[in-house]
Structures are given as C-alpha cells and as structure tokens.
Design a protein around this nucleic acid. Structure first.
Lengths: 207, 207
DNA sequence: CCCTGTGAATATTTTCACAGCT
DNA sequence: AGCTGTGAAAATATTCACAGGG
C-alpha cells in the first residue's frame, strides 16, 4: 500500500516530531519537518496526507496526534518479538543497544553456533544452540529474526529461520540472501554505508 | 554525477560479482546480476554503462574487469582512514567488524568521553579523550568519522568532528544531525531498519 | 543466436501552485 | 495571514524493445 520511500520518510518524521515534542513544542508545520530533512514542505504534506488525521490549515499538525497516527500506520504501536542469531561482538552490541527496546522491539531468544557460548545468559535470556533453531522458534512467538553471523553461515541460518516460519529478517551479514518472495529482508550492511561515503569522498577529491 | 540509486546498486553489483568470482565464474551477464537482486537486466545494463569498460555482446562482462571498474568509480580502490567516536558496545563491535578492513576502511583513531576508557588500547590503538578530538584529528589524515555515541551527545561530537575538517560521517546514533550542506552524513540507524520491517509485518497481519 | 547498449515509452516520485479552511 | 491538501506539471527512474556486434 505505502511505498518504501514514504515508509522510510514517515519513520523519520516520527523521530523528528518526538524531538520537537521533547523540546516542548505542541504543534508542527510541514515546513518545520521539511527543514530538518532538507526536503520540500509539499512532500511532507503529501506523505502526511496518507494518515487518518488531518492538519489544521494555518496552524499545522498536533504533534502527539501525528506521532500516534504514524505509529499506528507503521505498526509501531505494539511490541514485536525478536530472535537474535549470532552472539558475537555485533550480536552483543545489538542486544544491548537501548534503542530497540525503546521502540518496542524485544529480544526473546538468542542463538549461536559456538558451543562455548551455549548456556551463557544475557539479561536472563539463555543462548541456545543454532541446531535447535527451527523447533525452538516454533515454541515462541517470534516476529523478526536478526542475523548477525559471518557471511559464510548467513544463508544457512536464514534458511532455518524461514523454515521456522519467520517472514521478516534484518540481515547484518554482508551478503545477499536467497529467499522466496514472501520473505522480507532488510540489509543492514555496515560496510555498504561506508562504501557509499567513499563515492562522495572520491568525487570531492577529484574536484 | 551518479545519483544515489545507481551508487547503491553498483555497490551491490560489486559484491555479487565478487561472489560469482569466488564461485569460479569468469564472466557474468546483466541477467545473472539482475536475478540475484530481483531487478530487470535492463537496469543493470544501464547502470553498468556508466563504467568505462564495455560488455561483450553475446557474452556479458568479464568479472574481474567489472569489479575493478566499479571499485575505481566508487573510490574503493584505495584506503580510507577512520576515526571512531564512541567506544561502547556498538563502537567495539564496529571496530572489530572484519568487513571494514577487508573493504579498505582502516580505523586510525578511537575517541571516548568515559575517563575509564581513556588509555585502553584496541589492536594497538589508544583510546583518547573526546575533548582533544579537534586537535588530534588535525594531526592524522582522517577521511571519515563514525559516530557511535548516545543521541544526547551526538550533535556535540558531530560539531567537533566537522570543526576538525571531516566532511564524511556515518552516524549510528538514532537522531538527525544538523550540519552544513557540504558535509555528507549517512544514517545507519539500527532501530530504523526494524521499524521498516514493522510496517510489512503489520500489513501482513492485517491481510 | 545471445547479449549489450540505448533511444523511446512508461511509470513513479517530487515539486509547483493555488483554492480553501481556520 | 498562514498553512493544509491536492490537481496538474515537472523531474526522475525504470522498463521496453530492438538494432547491432561477437
């Protein structure tokens, strides 16, 4: 229904509104939001017109209503359960990253292939063997899998996760994963972001 | 010159070609690449037409030439030096993430505000106080800053980094940063990726 | 015959610009 | 007066489709 551009921007608007709210603002205009992102106010208005609530001409949008509407539209008004696959450095950082819980994403399960890690507990959650992944996931009510294993094993754990019925995956391994069309994968490839910067850096140096 | 869509795709093509190469392939067609990404071959060809080298009709593209060309165009054929700002859980994961070095991104400096961390060494690099950031960066030859501090201090360190002459920033803090137009920021907001998944999850559940 | 490179056509996204509400 | 919501225009991105080369 909504295309990915709009969804991505709505998420940003949401964060911006929350910041405005923290700063004591009650109302916000399309231009206020647009300025933060260096976009046009027309685009912000068109995006916001997808929401149920309308803005007030001459005034703008009531911030707390707007945040609620965006949350509702994006499914951020509830909790989602997560399985973390891979308890290495990156997995640990993700697990203890405060932003996830704050946004309603709860780790319910941690899985690793390293026998030394099995049985270790993080915030009361025991790390379990990757071998049991499929049956274990089925017992819990998991919505999303975060893959934080080396590329070499990413496809393998991805297959398991999908076999266990998960349809939403956030992949931190720097590789493409092969899945059927009904599985949604987002790639959070850290090196990829740096490579993007590389291009602007290089263009700058050549100028 | 190249728009961000093309740059992002070229980076993906690059990785795919490397995978093909590892699998022993020497030549690749636009369709081979397109299939991996579920794109059209026409798009791949149009993107690749930005490169110096041409493909061979009836055969495709020579993989190692293609990889080299993309590397050259994107500035990936050299090393870039990085300052890591924030030596917490996330900072540590990023520092020890093997993908960066492999892609030519080298950490040259680590900075933190926590007095307990100052003096600690990671792979021989000493963690230095954030207070000295500006003067310290000037002494080194830093190209990119990675910000991995809490949102509350992100803008502050961002300002310092910019004052020290850095123009490329990868920001892991979940907040928008205010900078002048000549500074390029990429947002690697971990929660944001999950929020995107949330929308597809929610749409699915409603169906 | 198979695949590239690319004009032309199509589809999508963004911006303009203004009527209309508060 | 100031800002929203949105048709219509413009800009941008993608796909089609085919001539031409190996």
């Amino acid at each position: 229904m909504l295309n990915k551009f709009i969804v991505e921007r709505l998420i940003l608007y949401n964060r911006i509104c929350k910041d405005f709210s923290k700063a004591g603002k009650k109302w916000v205009t399309s231009r206020d939001i647009a300025e933060v992102l260096s976009k046009t106010s027309a685009q912000v208005r068109r995006d916001l017109s997808k929401l149920g609530k309308k803005g007030k001409p001459g005034v703008g949008y009531k911030i707390d209503e707007l945040v609620m509407e965006i949350n509702k539209l994006l499914g951020l008004d509830r909790h989602w359960n997560i399985v973390l696959v891979g308890a290495g450095n990156l997995g640990r950082a993700l697990f203890f990253y405060p932003g996830f819980k704050r946004e309603g994403f709860n780790f319910k399960m941690i899985v690793d292939s390293n026998p030394d890690k099995i049985g270790e507990k993080w915030k009361g959650i025991e790390i379990t063997p990757v071998a049991n992944l499929v049956q274990d996931i089925n017992k819990k009510d998991i919505d999303i899998a975060i893959i934080a294993v080396p590329s070499a094993s990413a496809q393998e754990v991805c297959d398991k996760v999908v076999r266990a019925g998960i349809r939403e995956i956030l992949n931190f391994a720097p590789c493409n994963l092969n899945v059927s069309d009904d599985v949604e994968i987002r790639y959070a490839d850290l090196a990829l972001e740096l490579q993007n910067l590389s291009y602007t850096l290089k263009s700058r140096k050549n100028r």
